[in-house]
Nucleic acid binder design. Structure first.
Length: 266
DNA sequence: ATTGTGGCCTGCCCGC
DNA sequence: TGCGGGCAGGCCACAA
């Protein structure tokens, strides 16, 4: 599923949509439009304008819209990809293989599209319809982006909380961008039990967590995605810890299926 | 406020 | 071969 790494790939792909005059909007799935907007409202906000920037906060992709030829930022198109959403631009795909999602390009799965004067298209393909299109999404509701997370911000996200460590890390209002696979991988690499109360980490453990978090994001970005983790291959029933060979534990933590090693994660 | 739970959505995979 | 049930998880509404 798309987590922060995949959305970063989407953002880089979306740079190719900047500066092209928008001719039309195709929003065949009204359900996909969120925040009280309609086809008409999105069309009015985009047509005749152009994208001027592609930003990302956590898993939220933000495309700033402006009048073609300059002016002040008129609106921001927000794209969320849920679990199976894929971004395409001019038939190029940012991520070839999306975990848990089909690679087929069924016409019925195209939920939203922006057509440019030059004949090209920006498209969102999402079989499961868990993604969303918004206008001017409230960016303030998201916590600091995981790529830029500081020690103080991590401390603030965890301290004083009795919730499971994993749940806090996945809370997008505390830290933006981490999903289920990445969080399992980070905690596995950190040697920390996902069920530990978030506030129970001492300074040393929190430093280690931040170091592993950064390392994991950098490494898996270079490898090509959140499904390229060392734990990932073993993320199935009856599998063993790739580090020490112990049978992995499978639990539900924070409402999500969680794999962890009962020996080296404390 | 914090934390937990259920539901949304639908393709896919397994077992019968 | 077809079919039903379980599963996947990002996000949000809701409850305690």
């Amino acid at each position: 599923m798309p987590e922060i790494l995949e959305i970063e790939f989407y953002r880089r792909l979306a740079l190719g949509a900047i500066g092209r005059r928008i001719r039309e909007v195709d929003a065949p799935d009204a359900w996909y439009l969120k925040g009280g907007i309609s086809r008409r409202i999105v069309t009015d906000a985009l047509v005749g304008n152009e994208f001027v920037a592609a930003r990302r906060i956590g898993k939220l992709l933000l495309l700033d819209v402006d009048e073609a030829g300059g002016g002040s930022s008129a609106a921001t198109l927000g794209l969320r990809f849920g679990m199976t959403g894929v971004l395409e631009i001019d038939d190029a795909v940012a991520v070839e293989r999306l975990e848990y999602a089909s690679a087929r390009r069924d016409a019925a799965w195209y939920r939203f599209a922006v057509g440019f004067d030059d004949g090209g298209w920006l498209r969102v393909r999402d079989p499961r319809r868990l993604g969303a299109v918004e206008l001017d999404p409230s960016e303030g509701r998201l916590g600091p982006d995981a790529f830029a997370l500081t020690a103080a911000q991590l401390r603030r996200a965890l301290d004083g909380s009795g919730a499971p460590l994993k749940a806090r890390l996945m809370d997008q209002q505390r830290v933006a961008g981490l999903g289920n696979l990445l969080t399992d991988e980070i905690l596995w690499r950190s040697g920390l039990d996902p069920a530990r109360p978030a506030g129970s980490l001492d300074d040393r453990e929190r430093r280690r967590l931040l170091r592993r978090l950064r390392q994991t994001l950098d490494e898996l970005l270079a490898r090509g995605g959140s499904h390229r983790g060392d734990l990932q291959a073993a993320r199935q029933r009856g599998a063993y810890c790739p580090r020490d060979g112990t049978p992995l534990e499978r639990r539900t933590i924070g409402g999500r299926t969680t794999y962890s090693c009962p020996v080296h994660q404390h």
